[in-house]
């Protein structure tokens, strides 16, 4: 059972999203200890001059390209299926962010270190922060 997804996942509802970015603010606080939605592990694609907002979250892929391209095995799947980056092993090569089609790897512009969603290990802050129910935590089954 090496190839599996985590038991819980974030279901996005773009029709409920207003783009307010409270999810991203909560994520940045969780990851880095301060607010800056530009440093979040999820994105919001603002389409058609802000008419539509599409939240994009890490899928914790069955077949994660970020993991495959990492030359130092800094990216791995834990026993629950969550895809995680070990910043100690990360050499800031940027390959993982280059090969994530959803752009879900955040590379710190100053250090180049890769960061990504770890589902807050079970209780994602982004989901809790959304006042519009655009993010929902669901069970895989």
């Amino acid at each position: 059972m090496e190839k599996h997804r985590p038991g819980k996942f974030i279901r996005t509802h773009f029709d409920q999203c207003t783009g307010c970015s409270l999810c991203k603010a909560a994520c940045s606080l969780h990851m880095f200890g301060g607010y800056n939605p530009g440093k979040a592990m999820l994105r919001i694609r603002h389409l058609w001059e802000n008419l539509a907002h599409i939240p994009v979250v890490c899928e914790h892929c069955v077949n994660p390209m970020c993991l495959k391209v990492c030359p130092t095995k800094a990216i791995f799947k834990d026993e629950t299926g969550i895809v995680i980056v070990d910043q100690e092993k990360c050499v800031s090569c940027g390959l993982c962010s280059q090969y994530c089609p959803l752009e879900m790897i955040y590379a710190d512009p100053e250090t180049g270190k890769a960061y990504k969603c770890d589902l807050c290990r079970g209780n994602p802050e982004c989901v809790q922060a959304c006042p519009f129910n655009a993010l929902e935590l669901r069970d895989q089954d």
């Binding site: 207003t18 307010c20 970015s21 603010a25 008419l51």
Partner: peptide, 19 residues
């Protein structure tokens, strides 16, 4: 109107975006 839009961090989202 087609959908709502918010300023940063705002739970009111007073903007009704449309076309």
């Amino acid at each position: 109107w087609l959908g709502r839009s918010a300023c940063f961090g705002c739970p009111i989202a007073c903007s009704q975006m449309g076309a």
